[in-house]
């Protein structure tokens, strides 16, 4: 294949990575922005989304599109409910102390991972794509499902932005993000906001996991890479900034796609990590984050 089409293919693969990453990182960024909690277990919610998608598509009879649609709804809702319980049982009891919650979410990471290993097993299992359309370009054919992933992620991020900027619940979340004590003085139940935020963040990660599973297969250790990349994205974009998360996800996703295809995936990770180091040195608050 000539260089041009090869580059186009790399960019399209990068866009898919960016889309999935943007969803997962948006959840991580939201949880940190509103709650000031660095959720180390975030990648496990992504893994649970994928594993539950496998379970739901296996349990519900019917055509692949219908079972996948069910998984798209059921898996994030179940993971969000689990996160809400974890918030009440763990984070709230620690009074959302930033240091203590890091240790606690490391513990949660291992609990969820080992629970998945015990209940789901060590094997990677495929989930069929909801449809098998291919888009035929002059140089190569490309999976229609992968383009669907990009469009679905865009739609979800647009809905999230609308929710945060245009609804009463979004206003409450943003006010709590700015000043927890003053929010309480205006009748905002901060504990409830935190529970909802943690559930929403986990639900977004799970949704990313469901979308990726027809491309990657579900496996109990699959949460590590998205966690690392999500941290890279939110550090570059600015913790708590949705716009920054989206821009950084596109930069990291596209560079990952291009460098992985022309050189090696390892080099792509090395360069992303170097970029994080540069941002931390030159602009610690990230590209779009507010200065502390």
């Amino acid at each position: 294949m000539a260089f041009g089409p090869f580059l186009l293919l790399a960019l399209m693969e990068g866009l898919v990575t960016a889309a999935v990453l943007a969803l997962a990182a948006a959840g991580l960024s939201l949880v940190f922005g509103v709650m000031r909690v660095v959720n180390v277990a975030h990648g496990e919610f992504y893994m649970l989304g994928a594993v539950l998608a496998w379970a739901v598509t296996g349990m519900i009879p019917g055509p692949a599109a219908l079972t996948f649609l069910a998984a798209l709804i059921i898996a994030p809702v179940l993971v969000a409910a689990l996160a809400a319980v974890a918030d009440g049982l763990i984070l709230k009891r620690l009074n959302y102390d930033p240091e203590a919650t890091i240790v606690a979410t490391i513990g949660l990471l291992y609990i969820l991972q080992q629970a998945a290993l015990s209940l789901y097993g060590p094997n990677a299992n495929p989930v069929p794509a909801p449809f098998e359309w291919r888009i035929q370009l002059p140089w190569f054919g490309y999976s229609g499902y992968k383009l669907f992933v990009v469009l679905a992620a865009l739609a979800v991020l647009l809905a999230l932005w609308t929710f945060l900027s245009r609804t009463r619940a979004g206003l409450i979340m943003r006010a709590t993000q700015v000043d927890r004590m003053t929010a309480q003085a205006f009748g905002i139940n901060v504990d409830r906001v935190y529970m909802g935020t943690f559930a929403l963040g986990a639900g977004l990660a799970a949704l990313a996991g469901v979308l990726v599973v027809p491309i990657q297969q579900a496996q109990y250790l699959m949460g590590h890479d998205p966690l690392l990349l999500s941290f890279i994205v939110v550090i570059i974009g600015g913790l708590g900034s949705l716009r920054g998360t989206l821009v950084a996800a596109v930069v990291i996703g596209l560079s990952d796609g291009v460098i992985s295809m022309f050189f090696s995936p390892t080099l792509a990770k090395i360069l992303a990590t170097l970029l994080v180091a540069m941002v931390l040195v030159l602009r610690p608050q990230g590209l779009f984050g507010a200065r502390a």
Binding site: V178, T182, I188
Partner: peptide
């Protein structure tokens, strides 16, 4: 409160909306 403690990144209308919740 002392020092106002406004929701600084929110608009004036949004601050008033939080007050009226």
């Amino acid at each position: 409160p002392q020092g106002r403690r406004l929701f600084g990144p929110l608009t004036v209308a949004e601050n008033l909306a939080v007050g009226g919740l």
